[in-house]
Computed example of a mutant assay.
Amino acid sequence: MAYVIIRGNNGRRHEVDFENAEIKVEVHINEENVELVIEALDEDRPREKKRFTLVNLPRSAFDKAMAEMARSKGIAIKAVD
């Protein structure tokens, strides 16, 4: 079961629960950012009611997190530009 929880600057919690729906994940990367788009493939929902989340991260933070995870798992990662 996929879900996303964020807490905004105002302290309010926002949650997207994909339940058991099939999901599509897209990853877009450039030199500055990594963007994750996660969308439930709900054929029966109108477009304005689709469940999705968009996560935009600084590339440097994403790269650092992946490198730390790889080191902890003993995985060798080759940088690709």
Rank of each mutant, 00 (worst) to 15 (best):
M1H: 12
A2Y: 14
I6Q: 10
R7E: 11
R7L: 06
R7Y: 03
N9M: 10
N9R: 15
N9P: 07
N10E: 07
G11T: 07
R12L: 12
R12F: 12
H14W: 05
H14N: 12
F18C: 05
E19P: 06
N20P: 06
A21H: 15
E22A: 07
E22P: 11
K24M: 12
V25G: 03
V27F: 09
H28R: 14
N30L: 09
E31Y: 04
N33M: 12
N33K: 11
V34A: 04
V34E: 00
L36H: 05
V37T: 15
V37Q: 15
I38C: 02
E39I: 10
E43H: 10
D44W: 06
R45N: 08
R45Q: 13
P46M: 14
P46T: 15
R47V: 14
R47C: 09
E48M: 11
K49P: 03
K49S: 13
K50D: 02
R51D: 14
R51E: 12
F52I: 04
F52K: 09
T53A: 15
L54H: 15
V55T: 13
L57C: 07
P58H: 03
R59A: 09
A61K: 14
A61G: 08
F62T: 02
F62N: 01
D63H: 06
D63K: 04
A65C: 04
A65Q: 02
M66S: 00
A67P: 01
A67G: 05
E68T: 07
M69I: 12
A70V: 01
R71Q: 07
S72C: 00
G74Y: 01
A76Q: 14
I77P: 01
I77E: 05
K78P: 01
K78N: 01
A79M: 05
A79H: 13
A79Q: 09
